[in-house]
Design a protein around this nucleic acid. Structure first.
Lengths: 157, 157
DNA sequence: ATTTCTGCAAACGATTTGCACAGGG
DNA sequence: CCCTGTGCAAATCGTTTGCAGAAAT
């Protein structure tokens, strides 16, 4: 049933007449190596460690391919850069909580939320294709300590 | 109980030692004149009709003030420009459905969704301050006719 | 041989900002 | 008078793109 992500990306490339280049391979491996959200600059870094010839332009040009193949999902966190989430392969309907202090991201899935959204959209004559549920707030640590420990390192702007 | 929006913005300016200029007045009136979402360029146009001296820079500098005063809310529609929504004054918890074809925006409120979100965030030790629920999909018209009539005029990119 | 891919650097476009002047208090 | 607010134009910064050479098929 469940097809390994690596194979299905390369299948996607093959089916669409897209070439298998060392740069694309490096980018794909970099993506497969992480279970965390990342943005373009981070992916560029990771890819360059595998294959130094990878350029920023190629990363920007490859990301939409990987999104279309299903390996990644664009993740609009309302920051100034776009994020990408590799966890939709395993959890197709998850949503995100984002701490306003440390930018910590908590992923959650809730069947009731799915259900409710479907009811609402049906009521309004709307067929959902993409749902962005992003809840910003204060994480546990921020509430308990008044500050988040890893405020600096996680902060993105 | 319910304070007219105009007064409360000017109160906000006064309380914060912010000056009442013709440009700010024009921008505020322009906002009060619309019940629709808009982006900066549209607000600039509307404001210039009231007071031609209003510049783009002043609109960009005034918008955060109006957001802080509560008159407007930033509305991240995942497009390349930021939108602003004047309807949160009347409906503080509403969410948005966006048609992927014609960019039509349907606003909705649902107490169950609020309730559910509160349960989820409580379960995860999270105190929400800001919720973005944006559901993209096919609107009624798109489903019935296979295309949206006002596709062109509403499209933003 | 053909056509897609690539890196580079320039272009793009929304937003921000430095500056000197205008005008509120 | 002082100091905030303004318009203008330049700067910023993530992302896109034109181009000529490189590599895949």
């Amino acid at each position: 049933m469940e097809q390994p992500a690596r194979e299905s990306v390369y299948d996607y490339l093959a089916e669409h007449g897209l070439r298998r280049t060392v740069q694309r391979e490096a980018i794909i491996e970099a993506v497969l190596n992480t279970k965390e959200h990342f943005h373009t600059e981070e992916l560029l870094e990771m890819s360059k460690k595998i294959e130094p010839s990878v350029s920023r332009a190629t990363v920007y040009r490859t990301l939409p391919l990987l999104v279309r193949s299903g390996l990644l999902r664009e993740l609009d966190l309302g920051r100034d850069v776009m994020f990408y989430d590799p966890n939709f392969v395993a959890h197709p309907t998850h949503n995100h909580l984002i701490c306003i202090d440390c930018d910590k991201i908590i992923e959650f899935e809730d069947p009731n939320m799915e259900l409710l959204e479907n009811c609402i959209t049906r009521r309004l004559g709307f067929s959902p294709t993409n749902k962005i549920v992003r809840i910003e707030g204060r994480c546990d640590e921020l509430k308990l300590r008044g500050a988040c420990r890893n405020r600096q390192e996680v902060q993105h702007r």
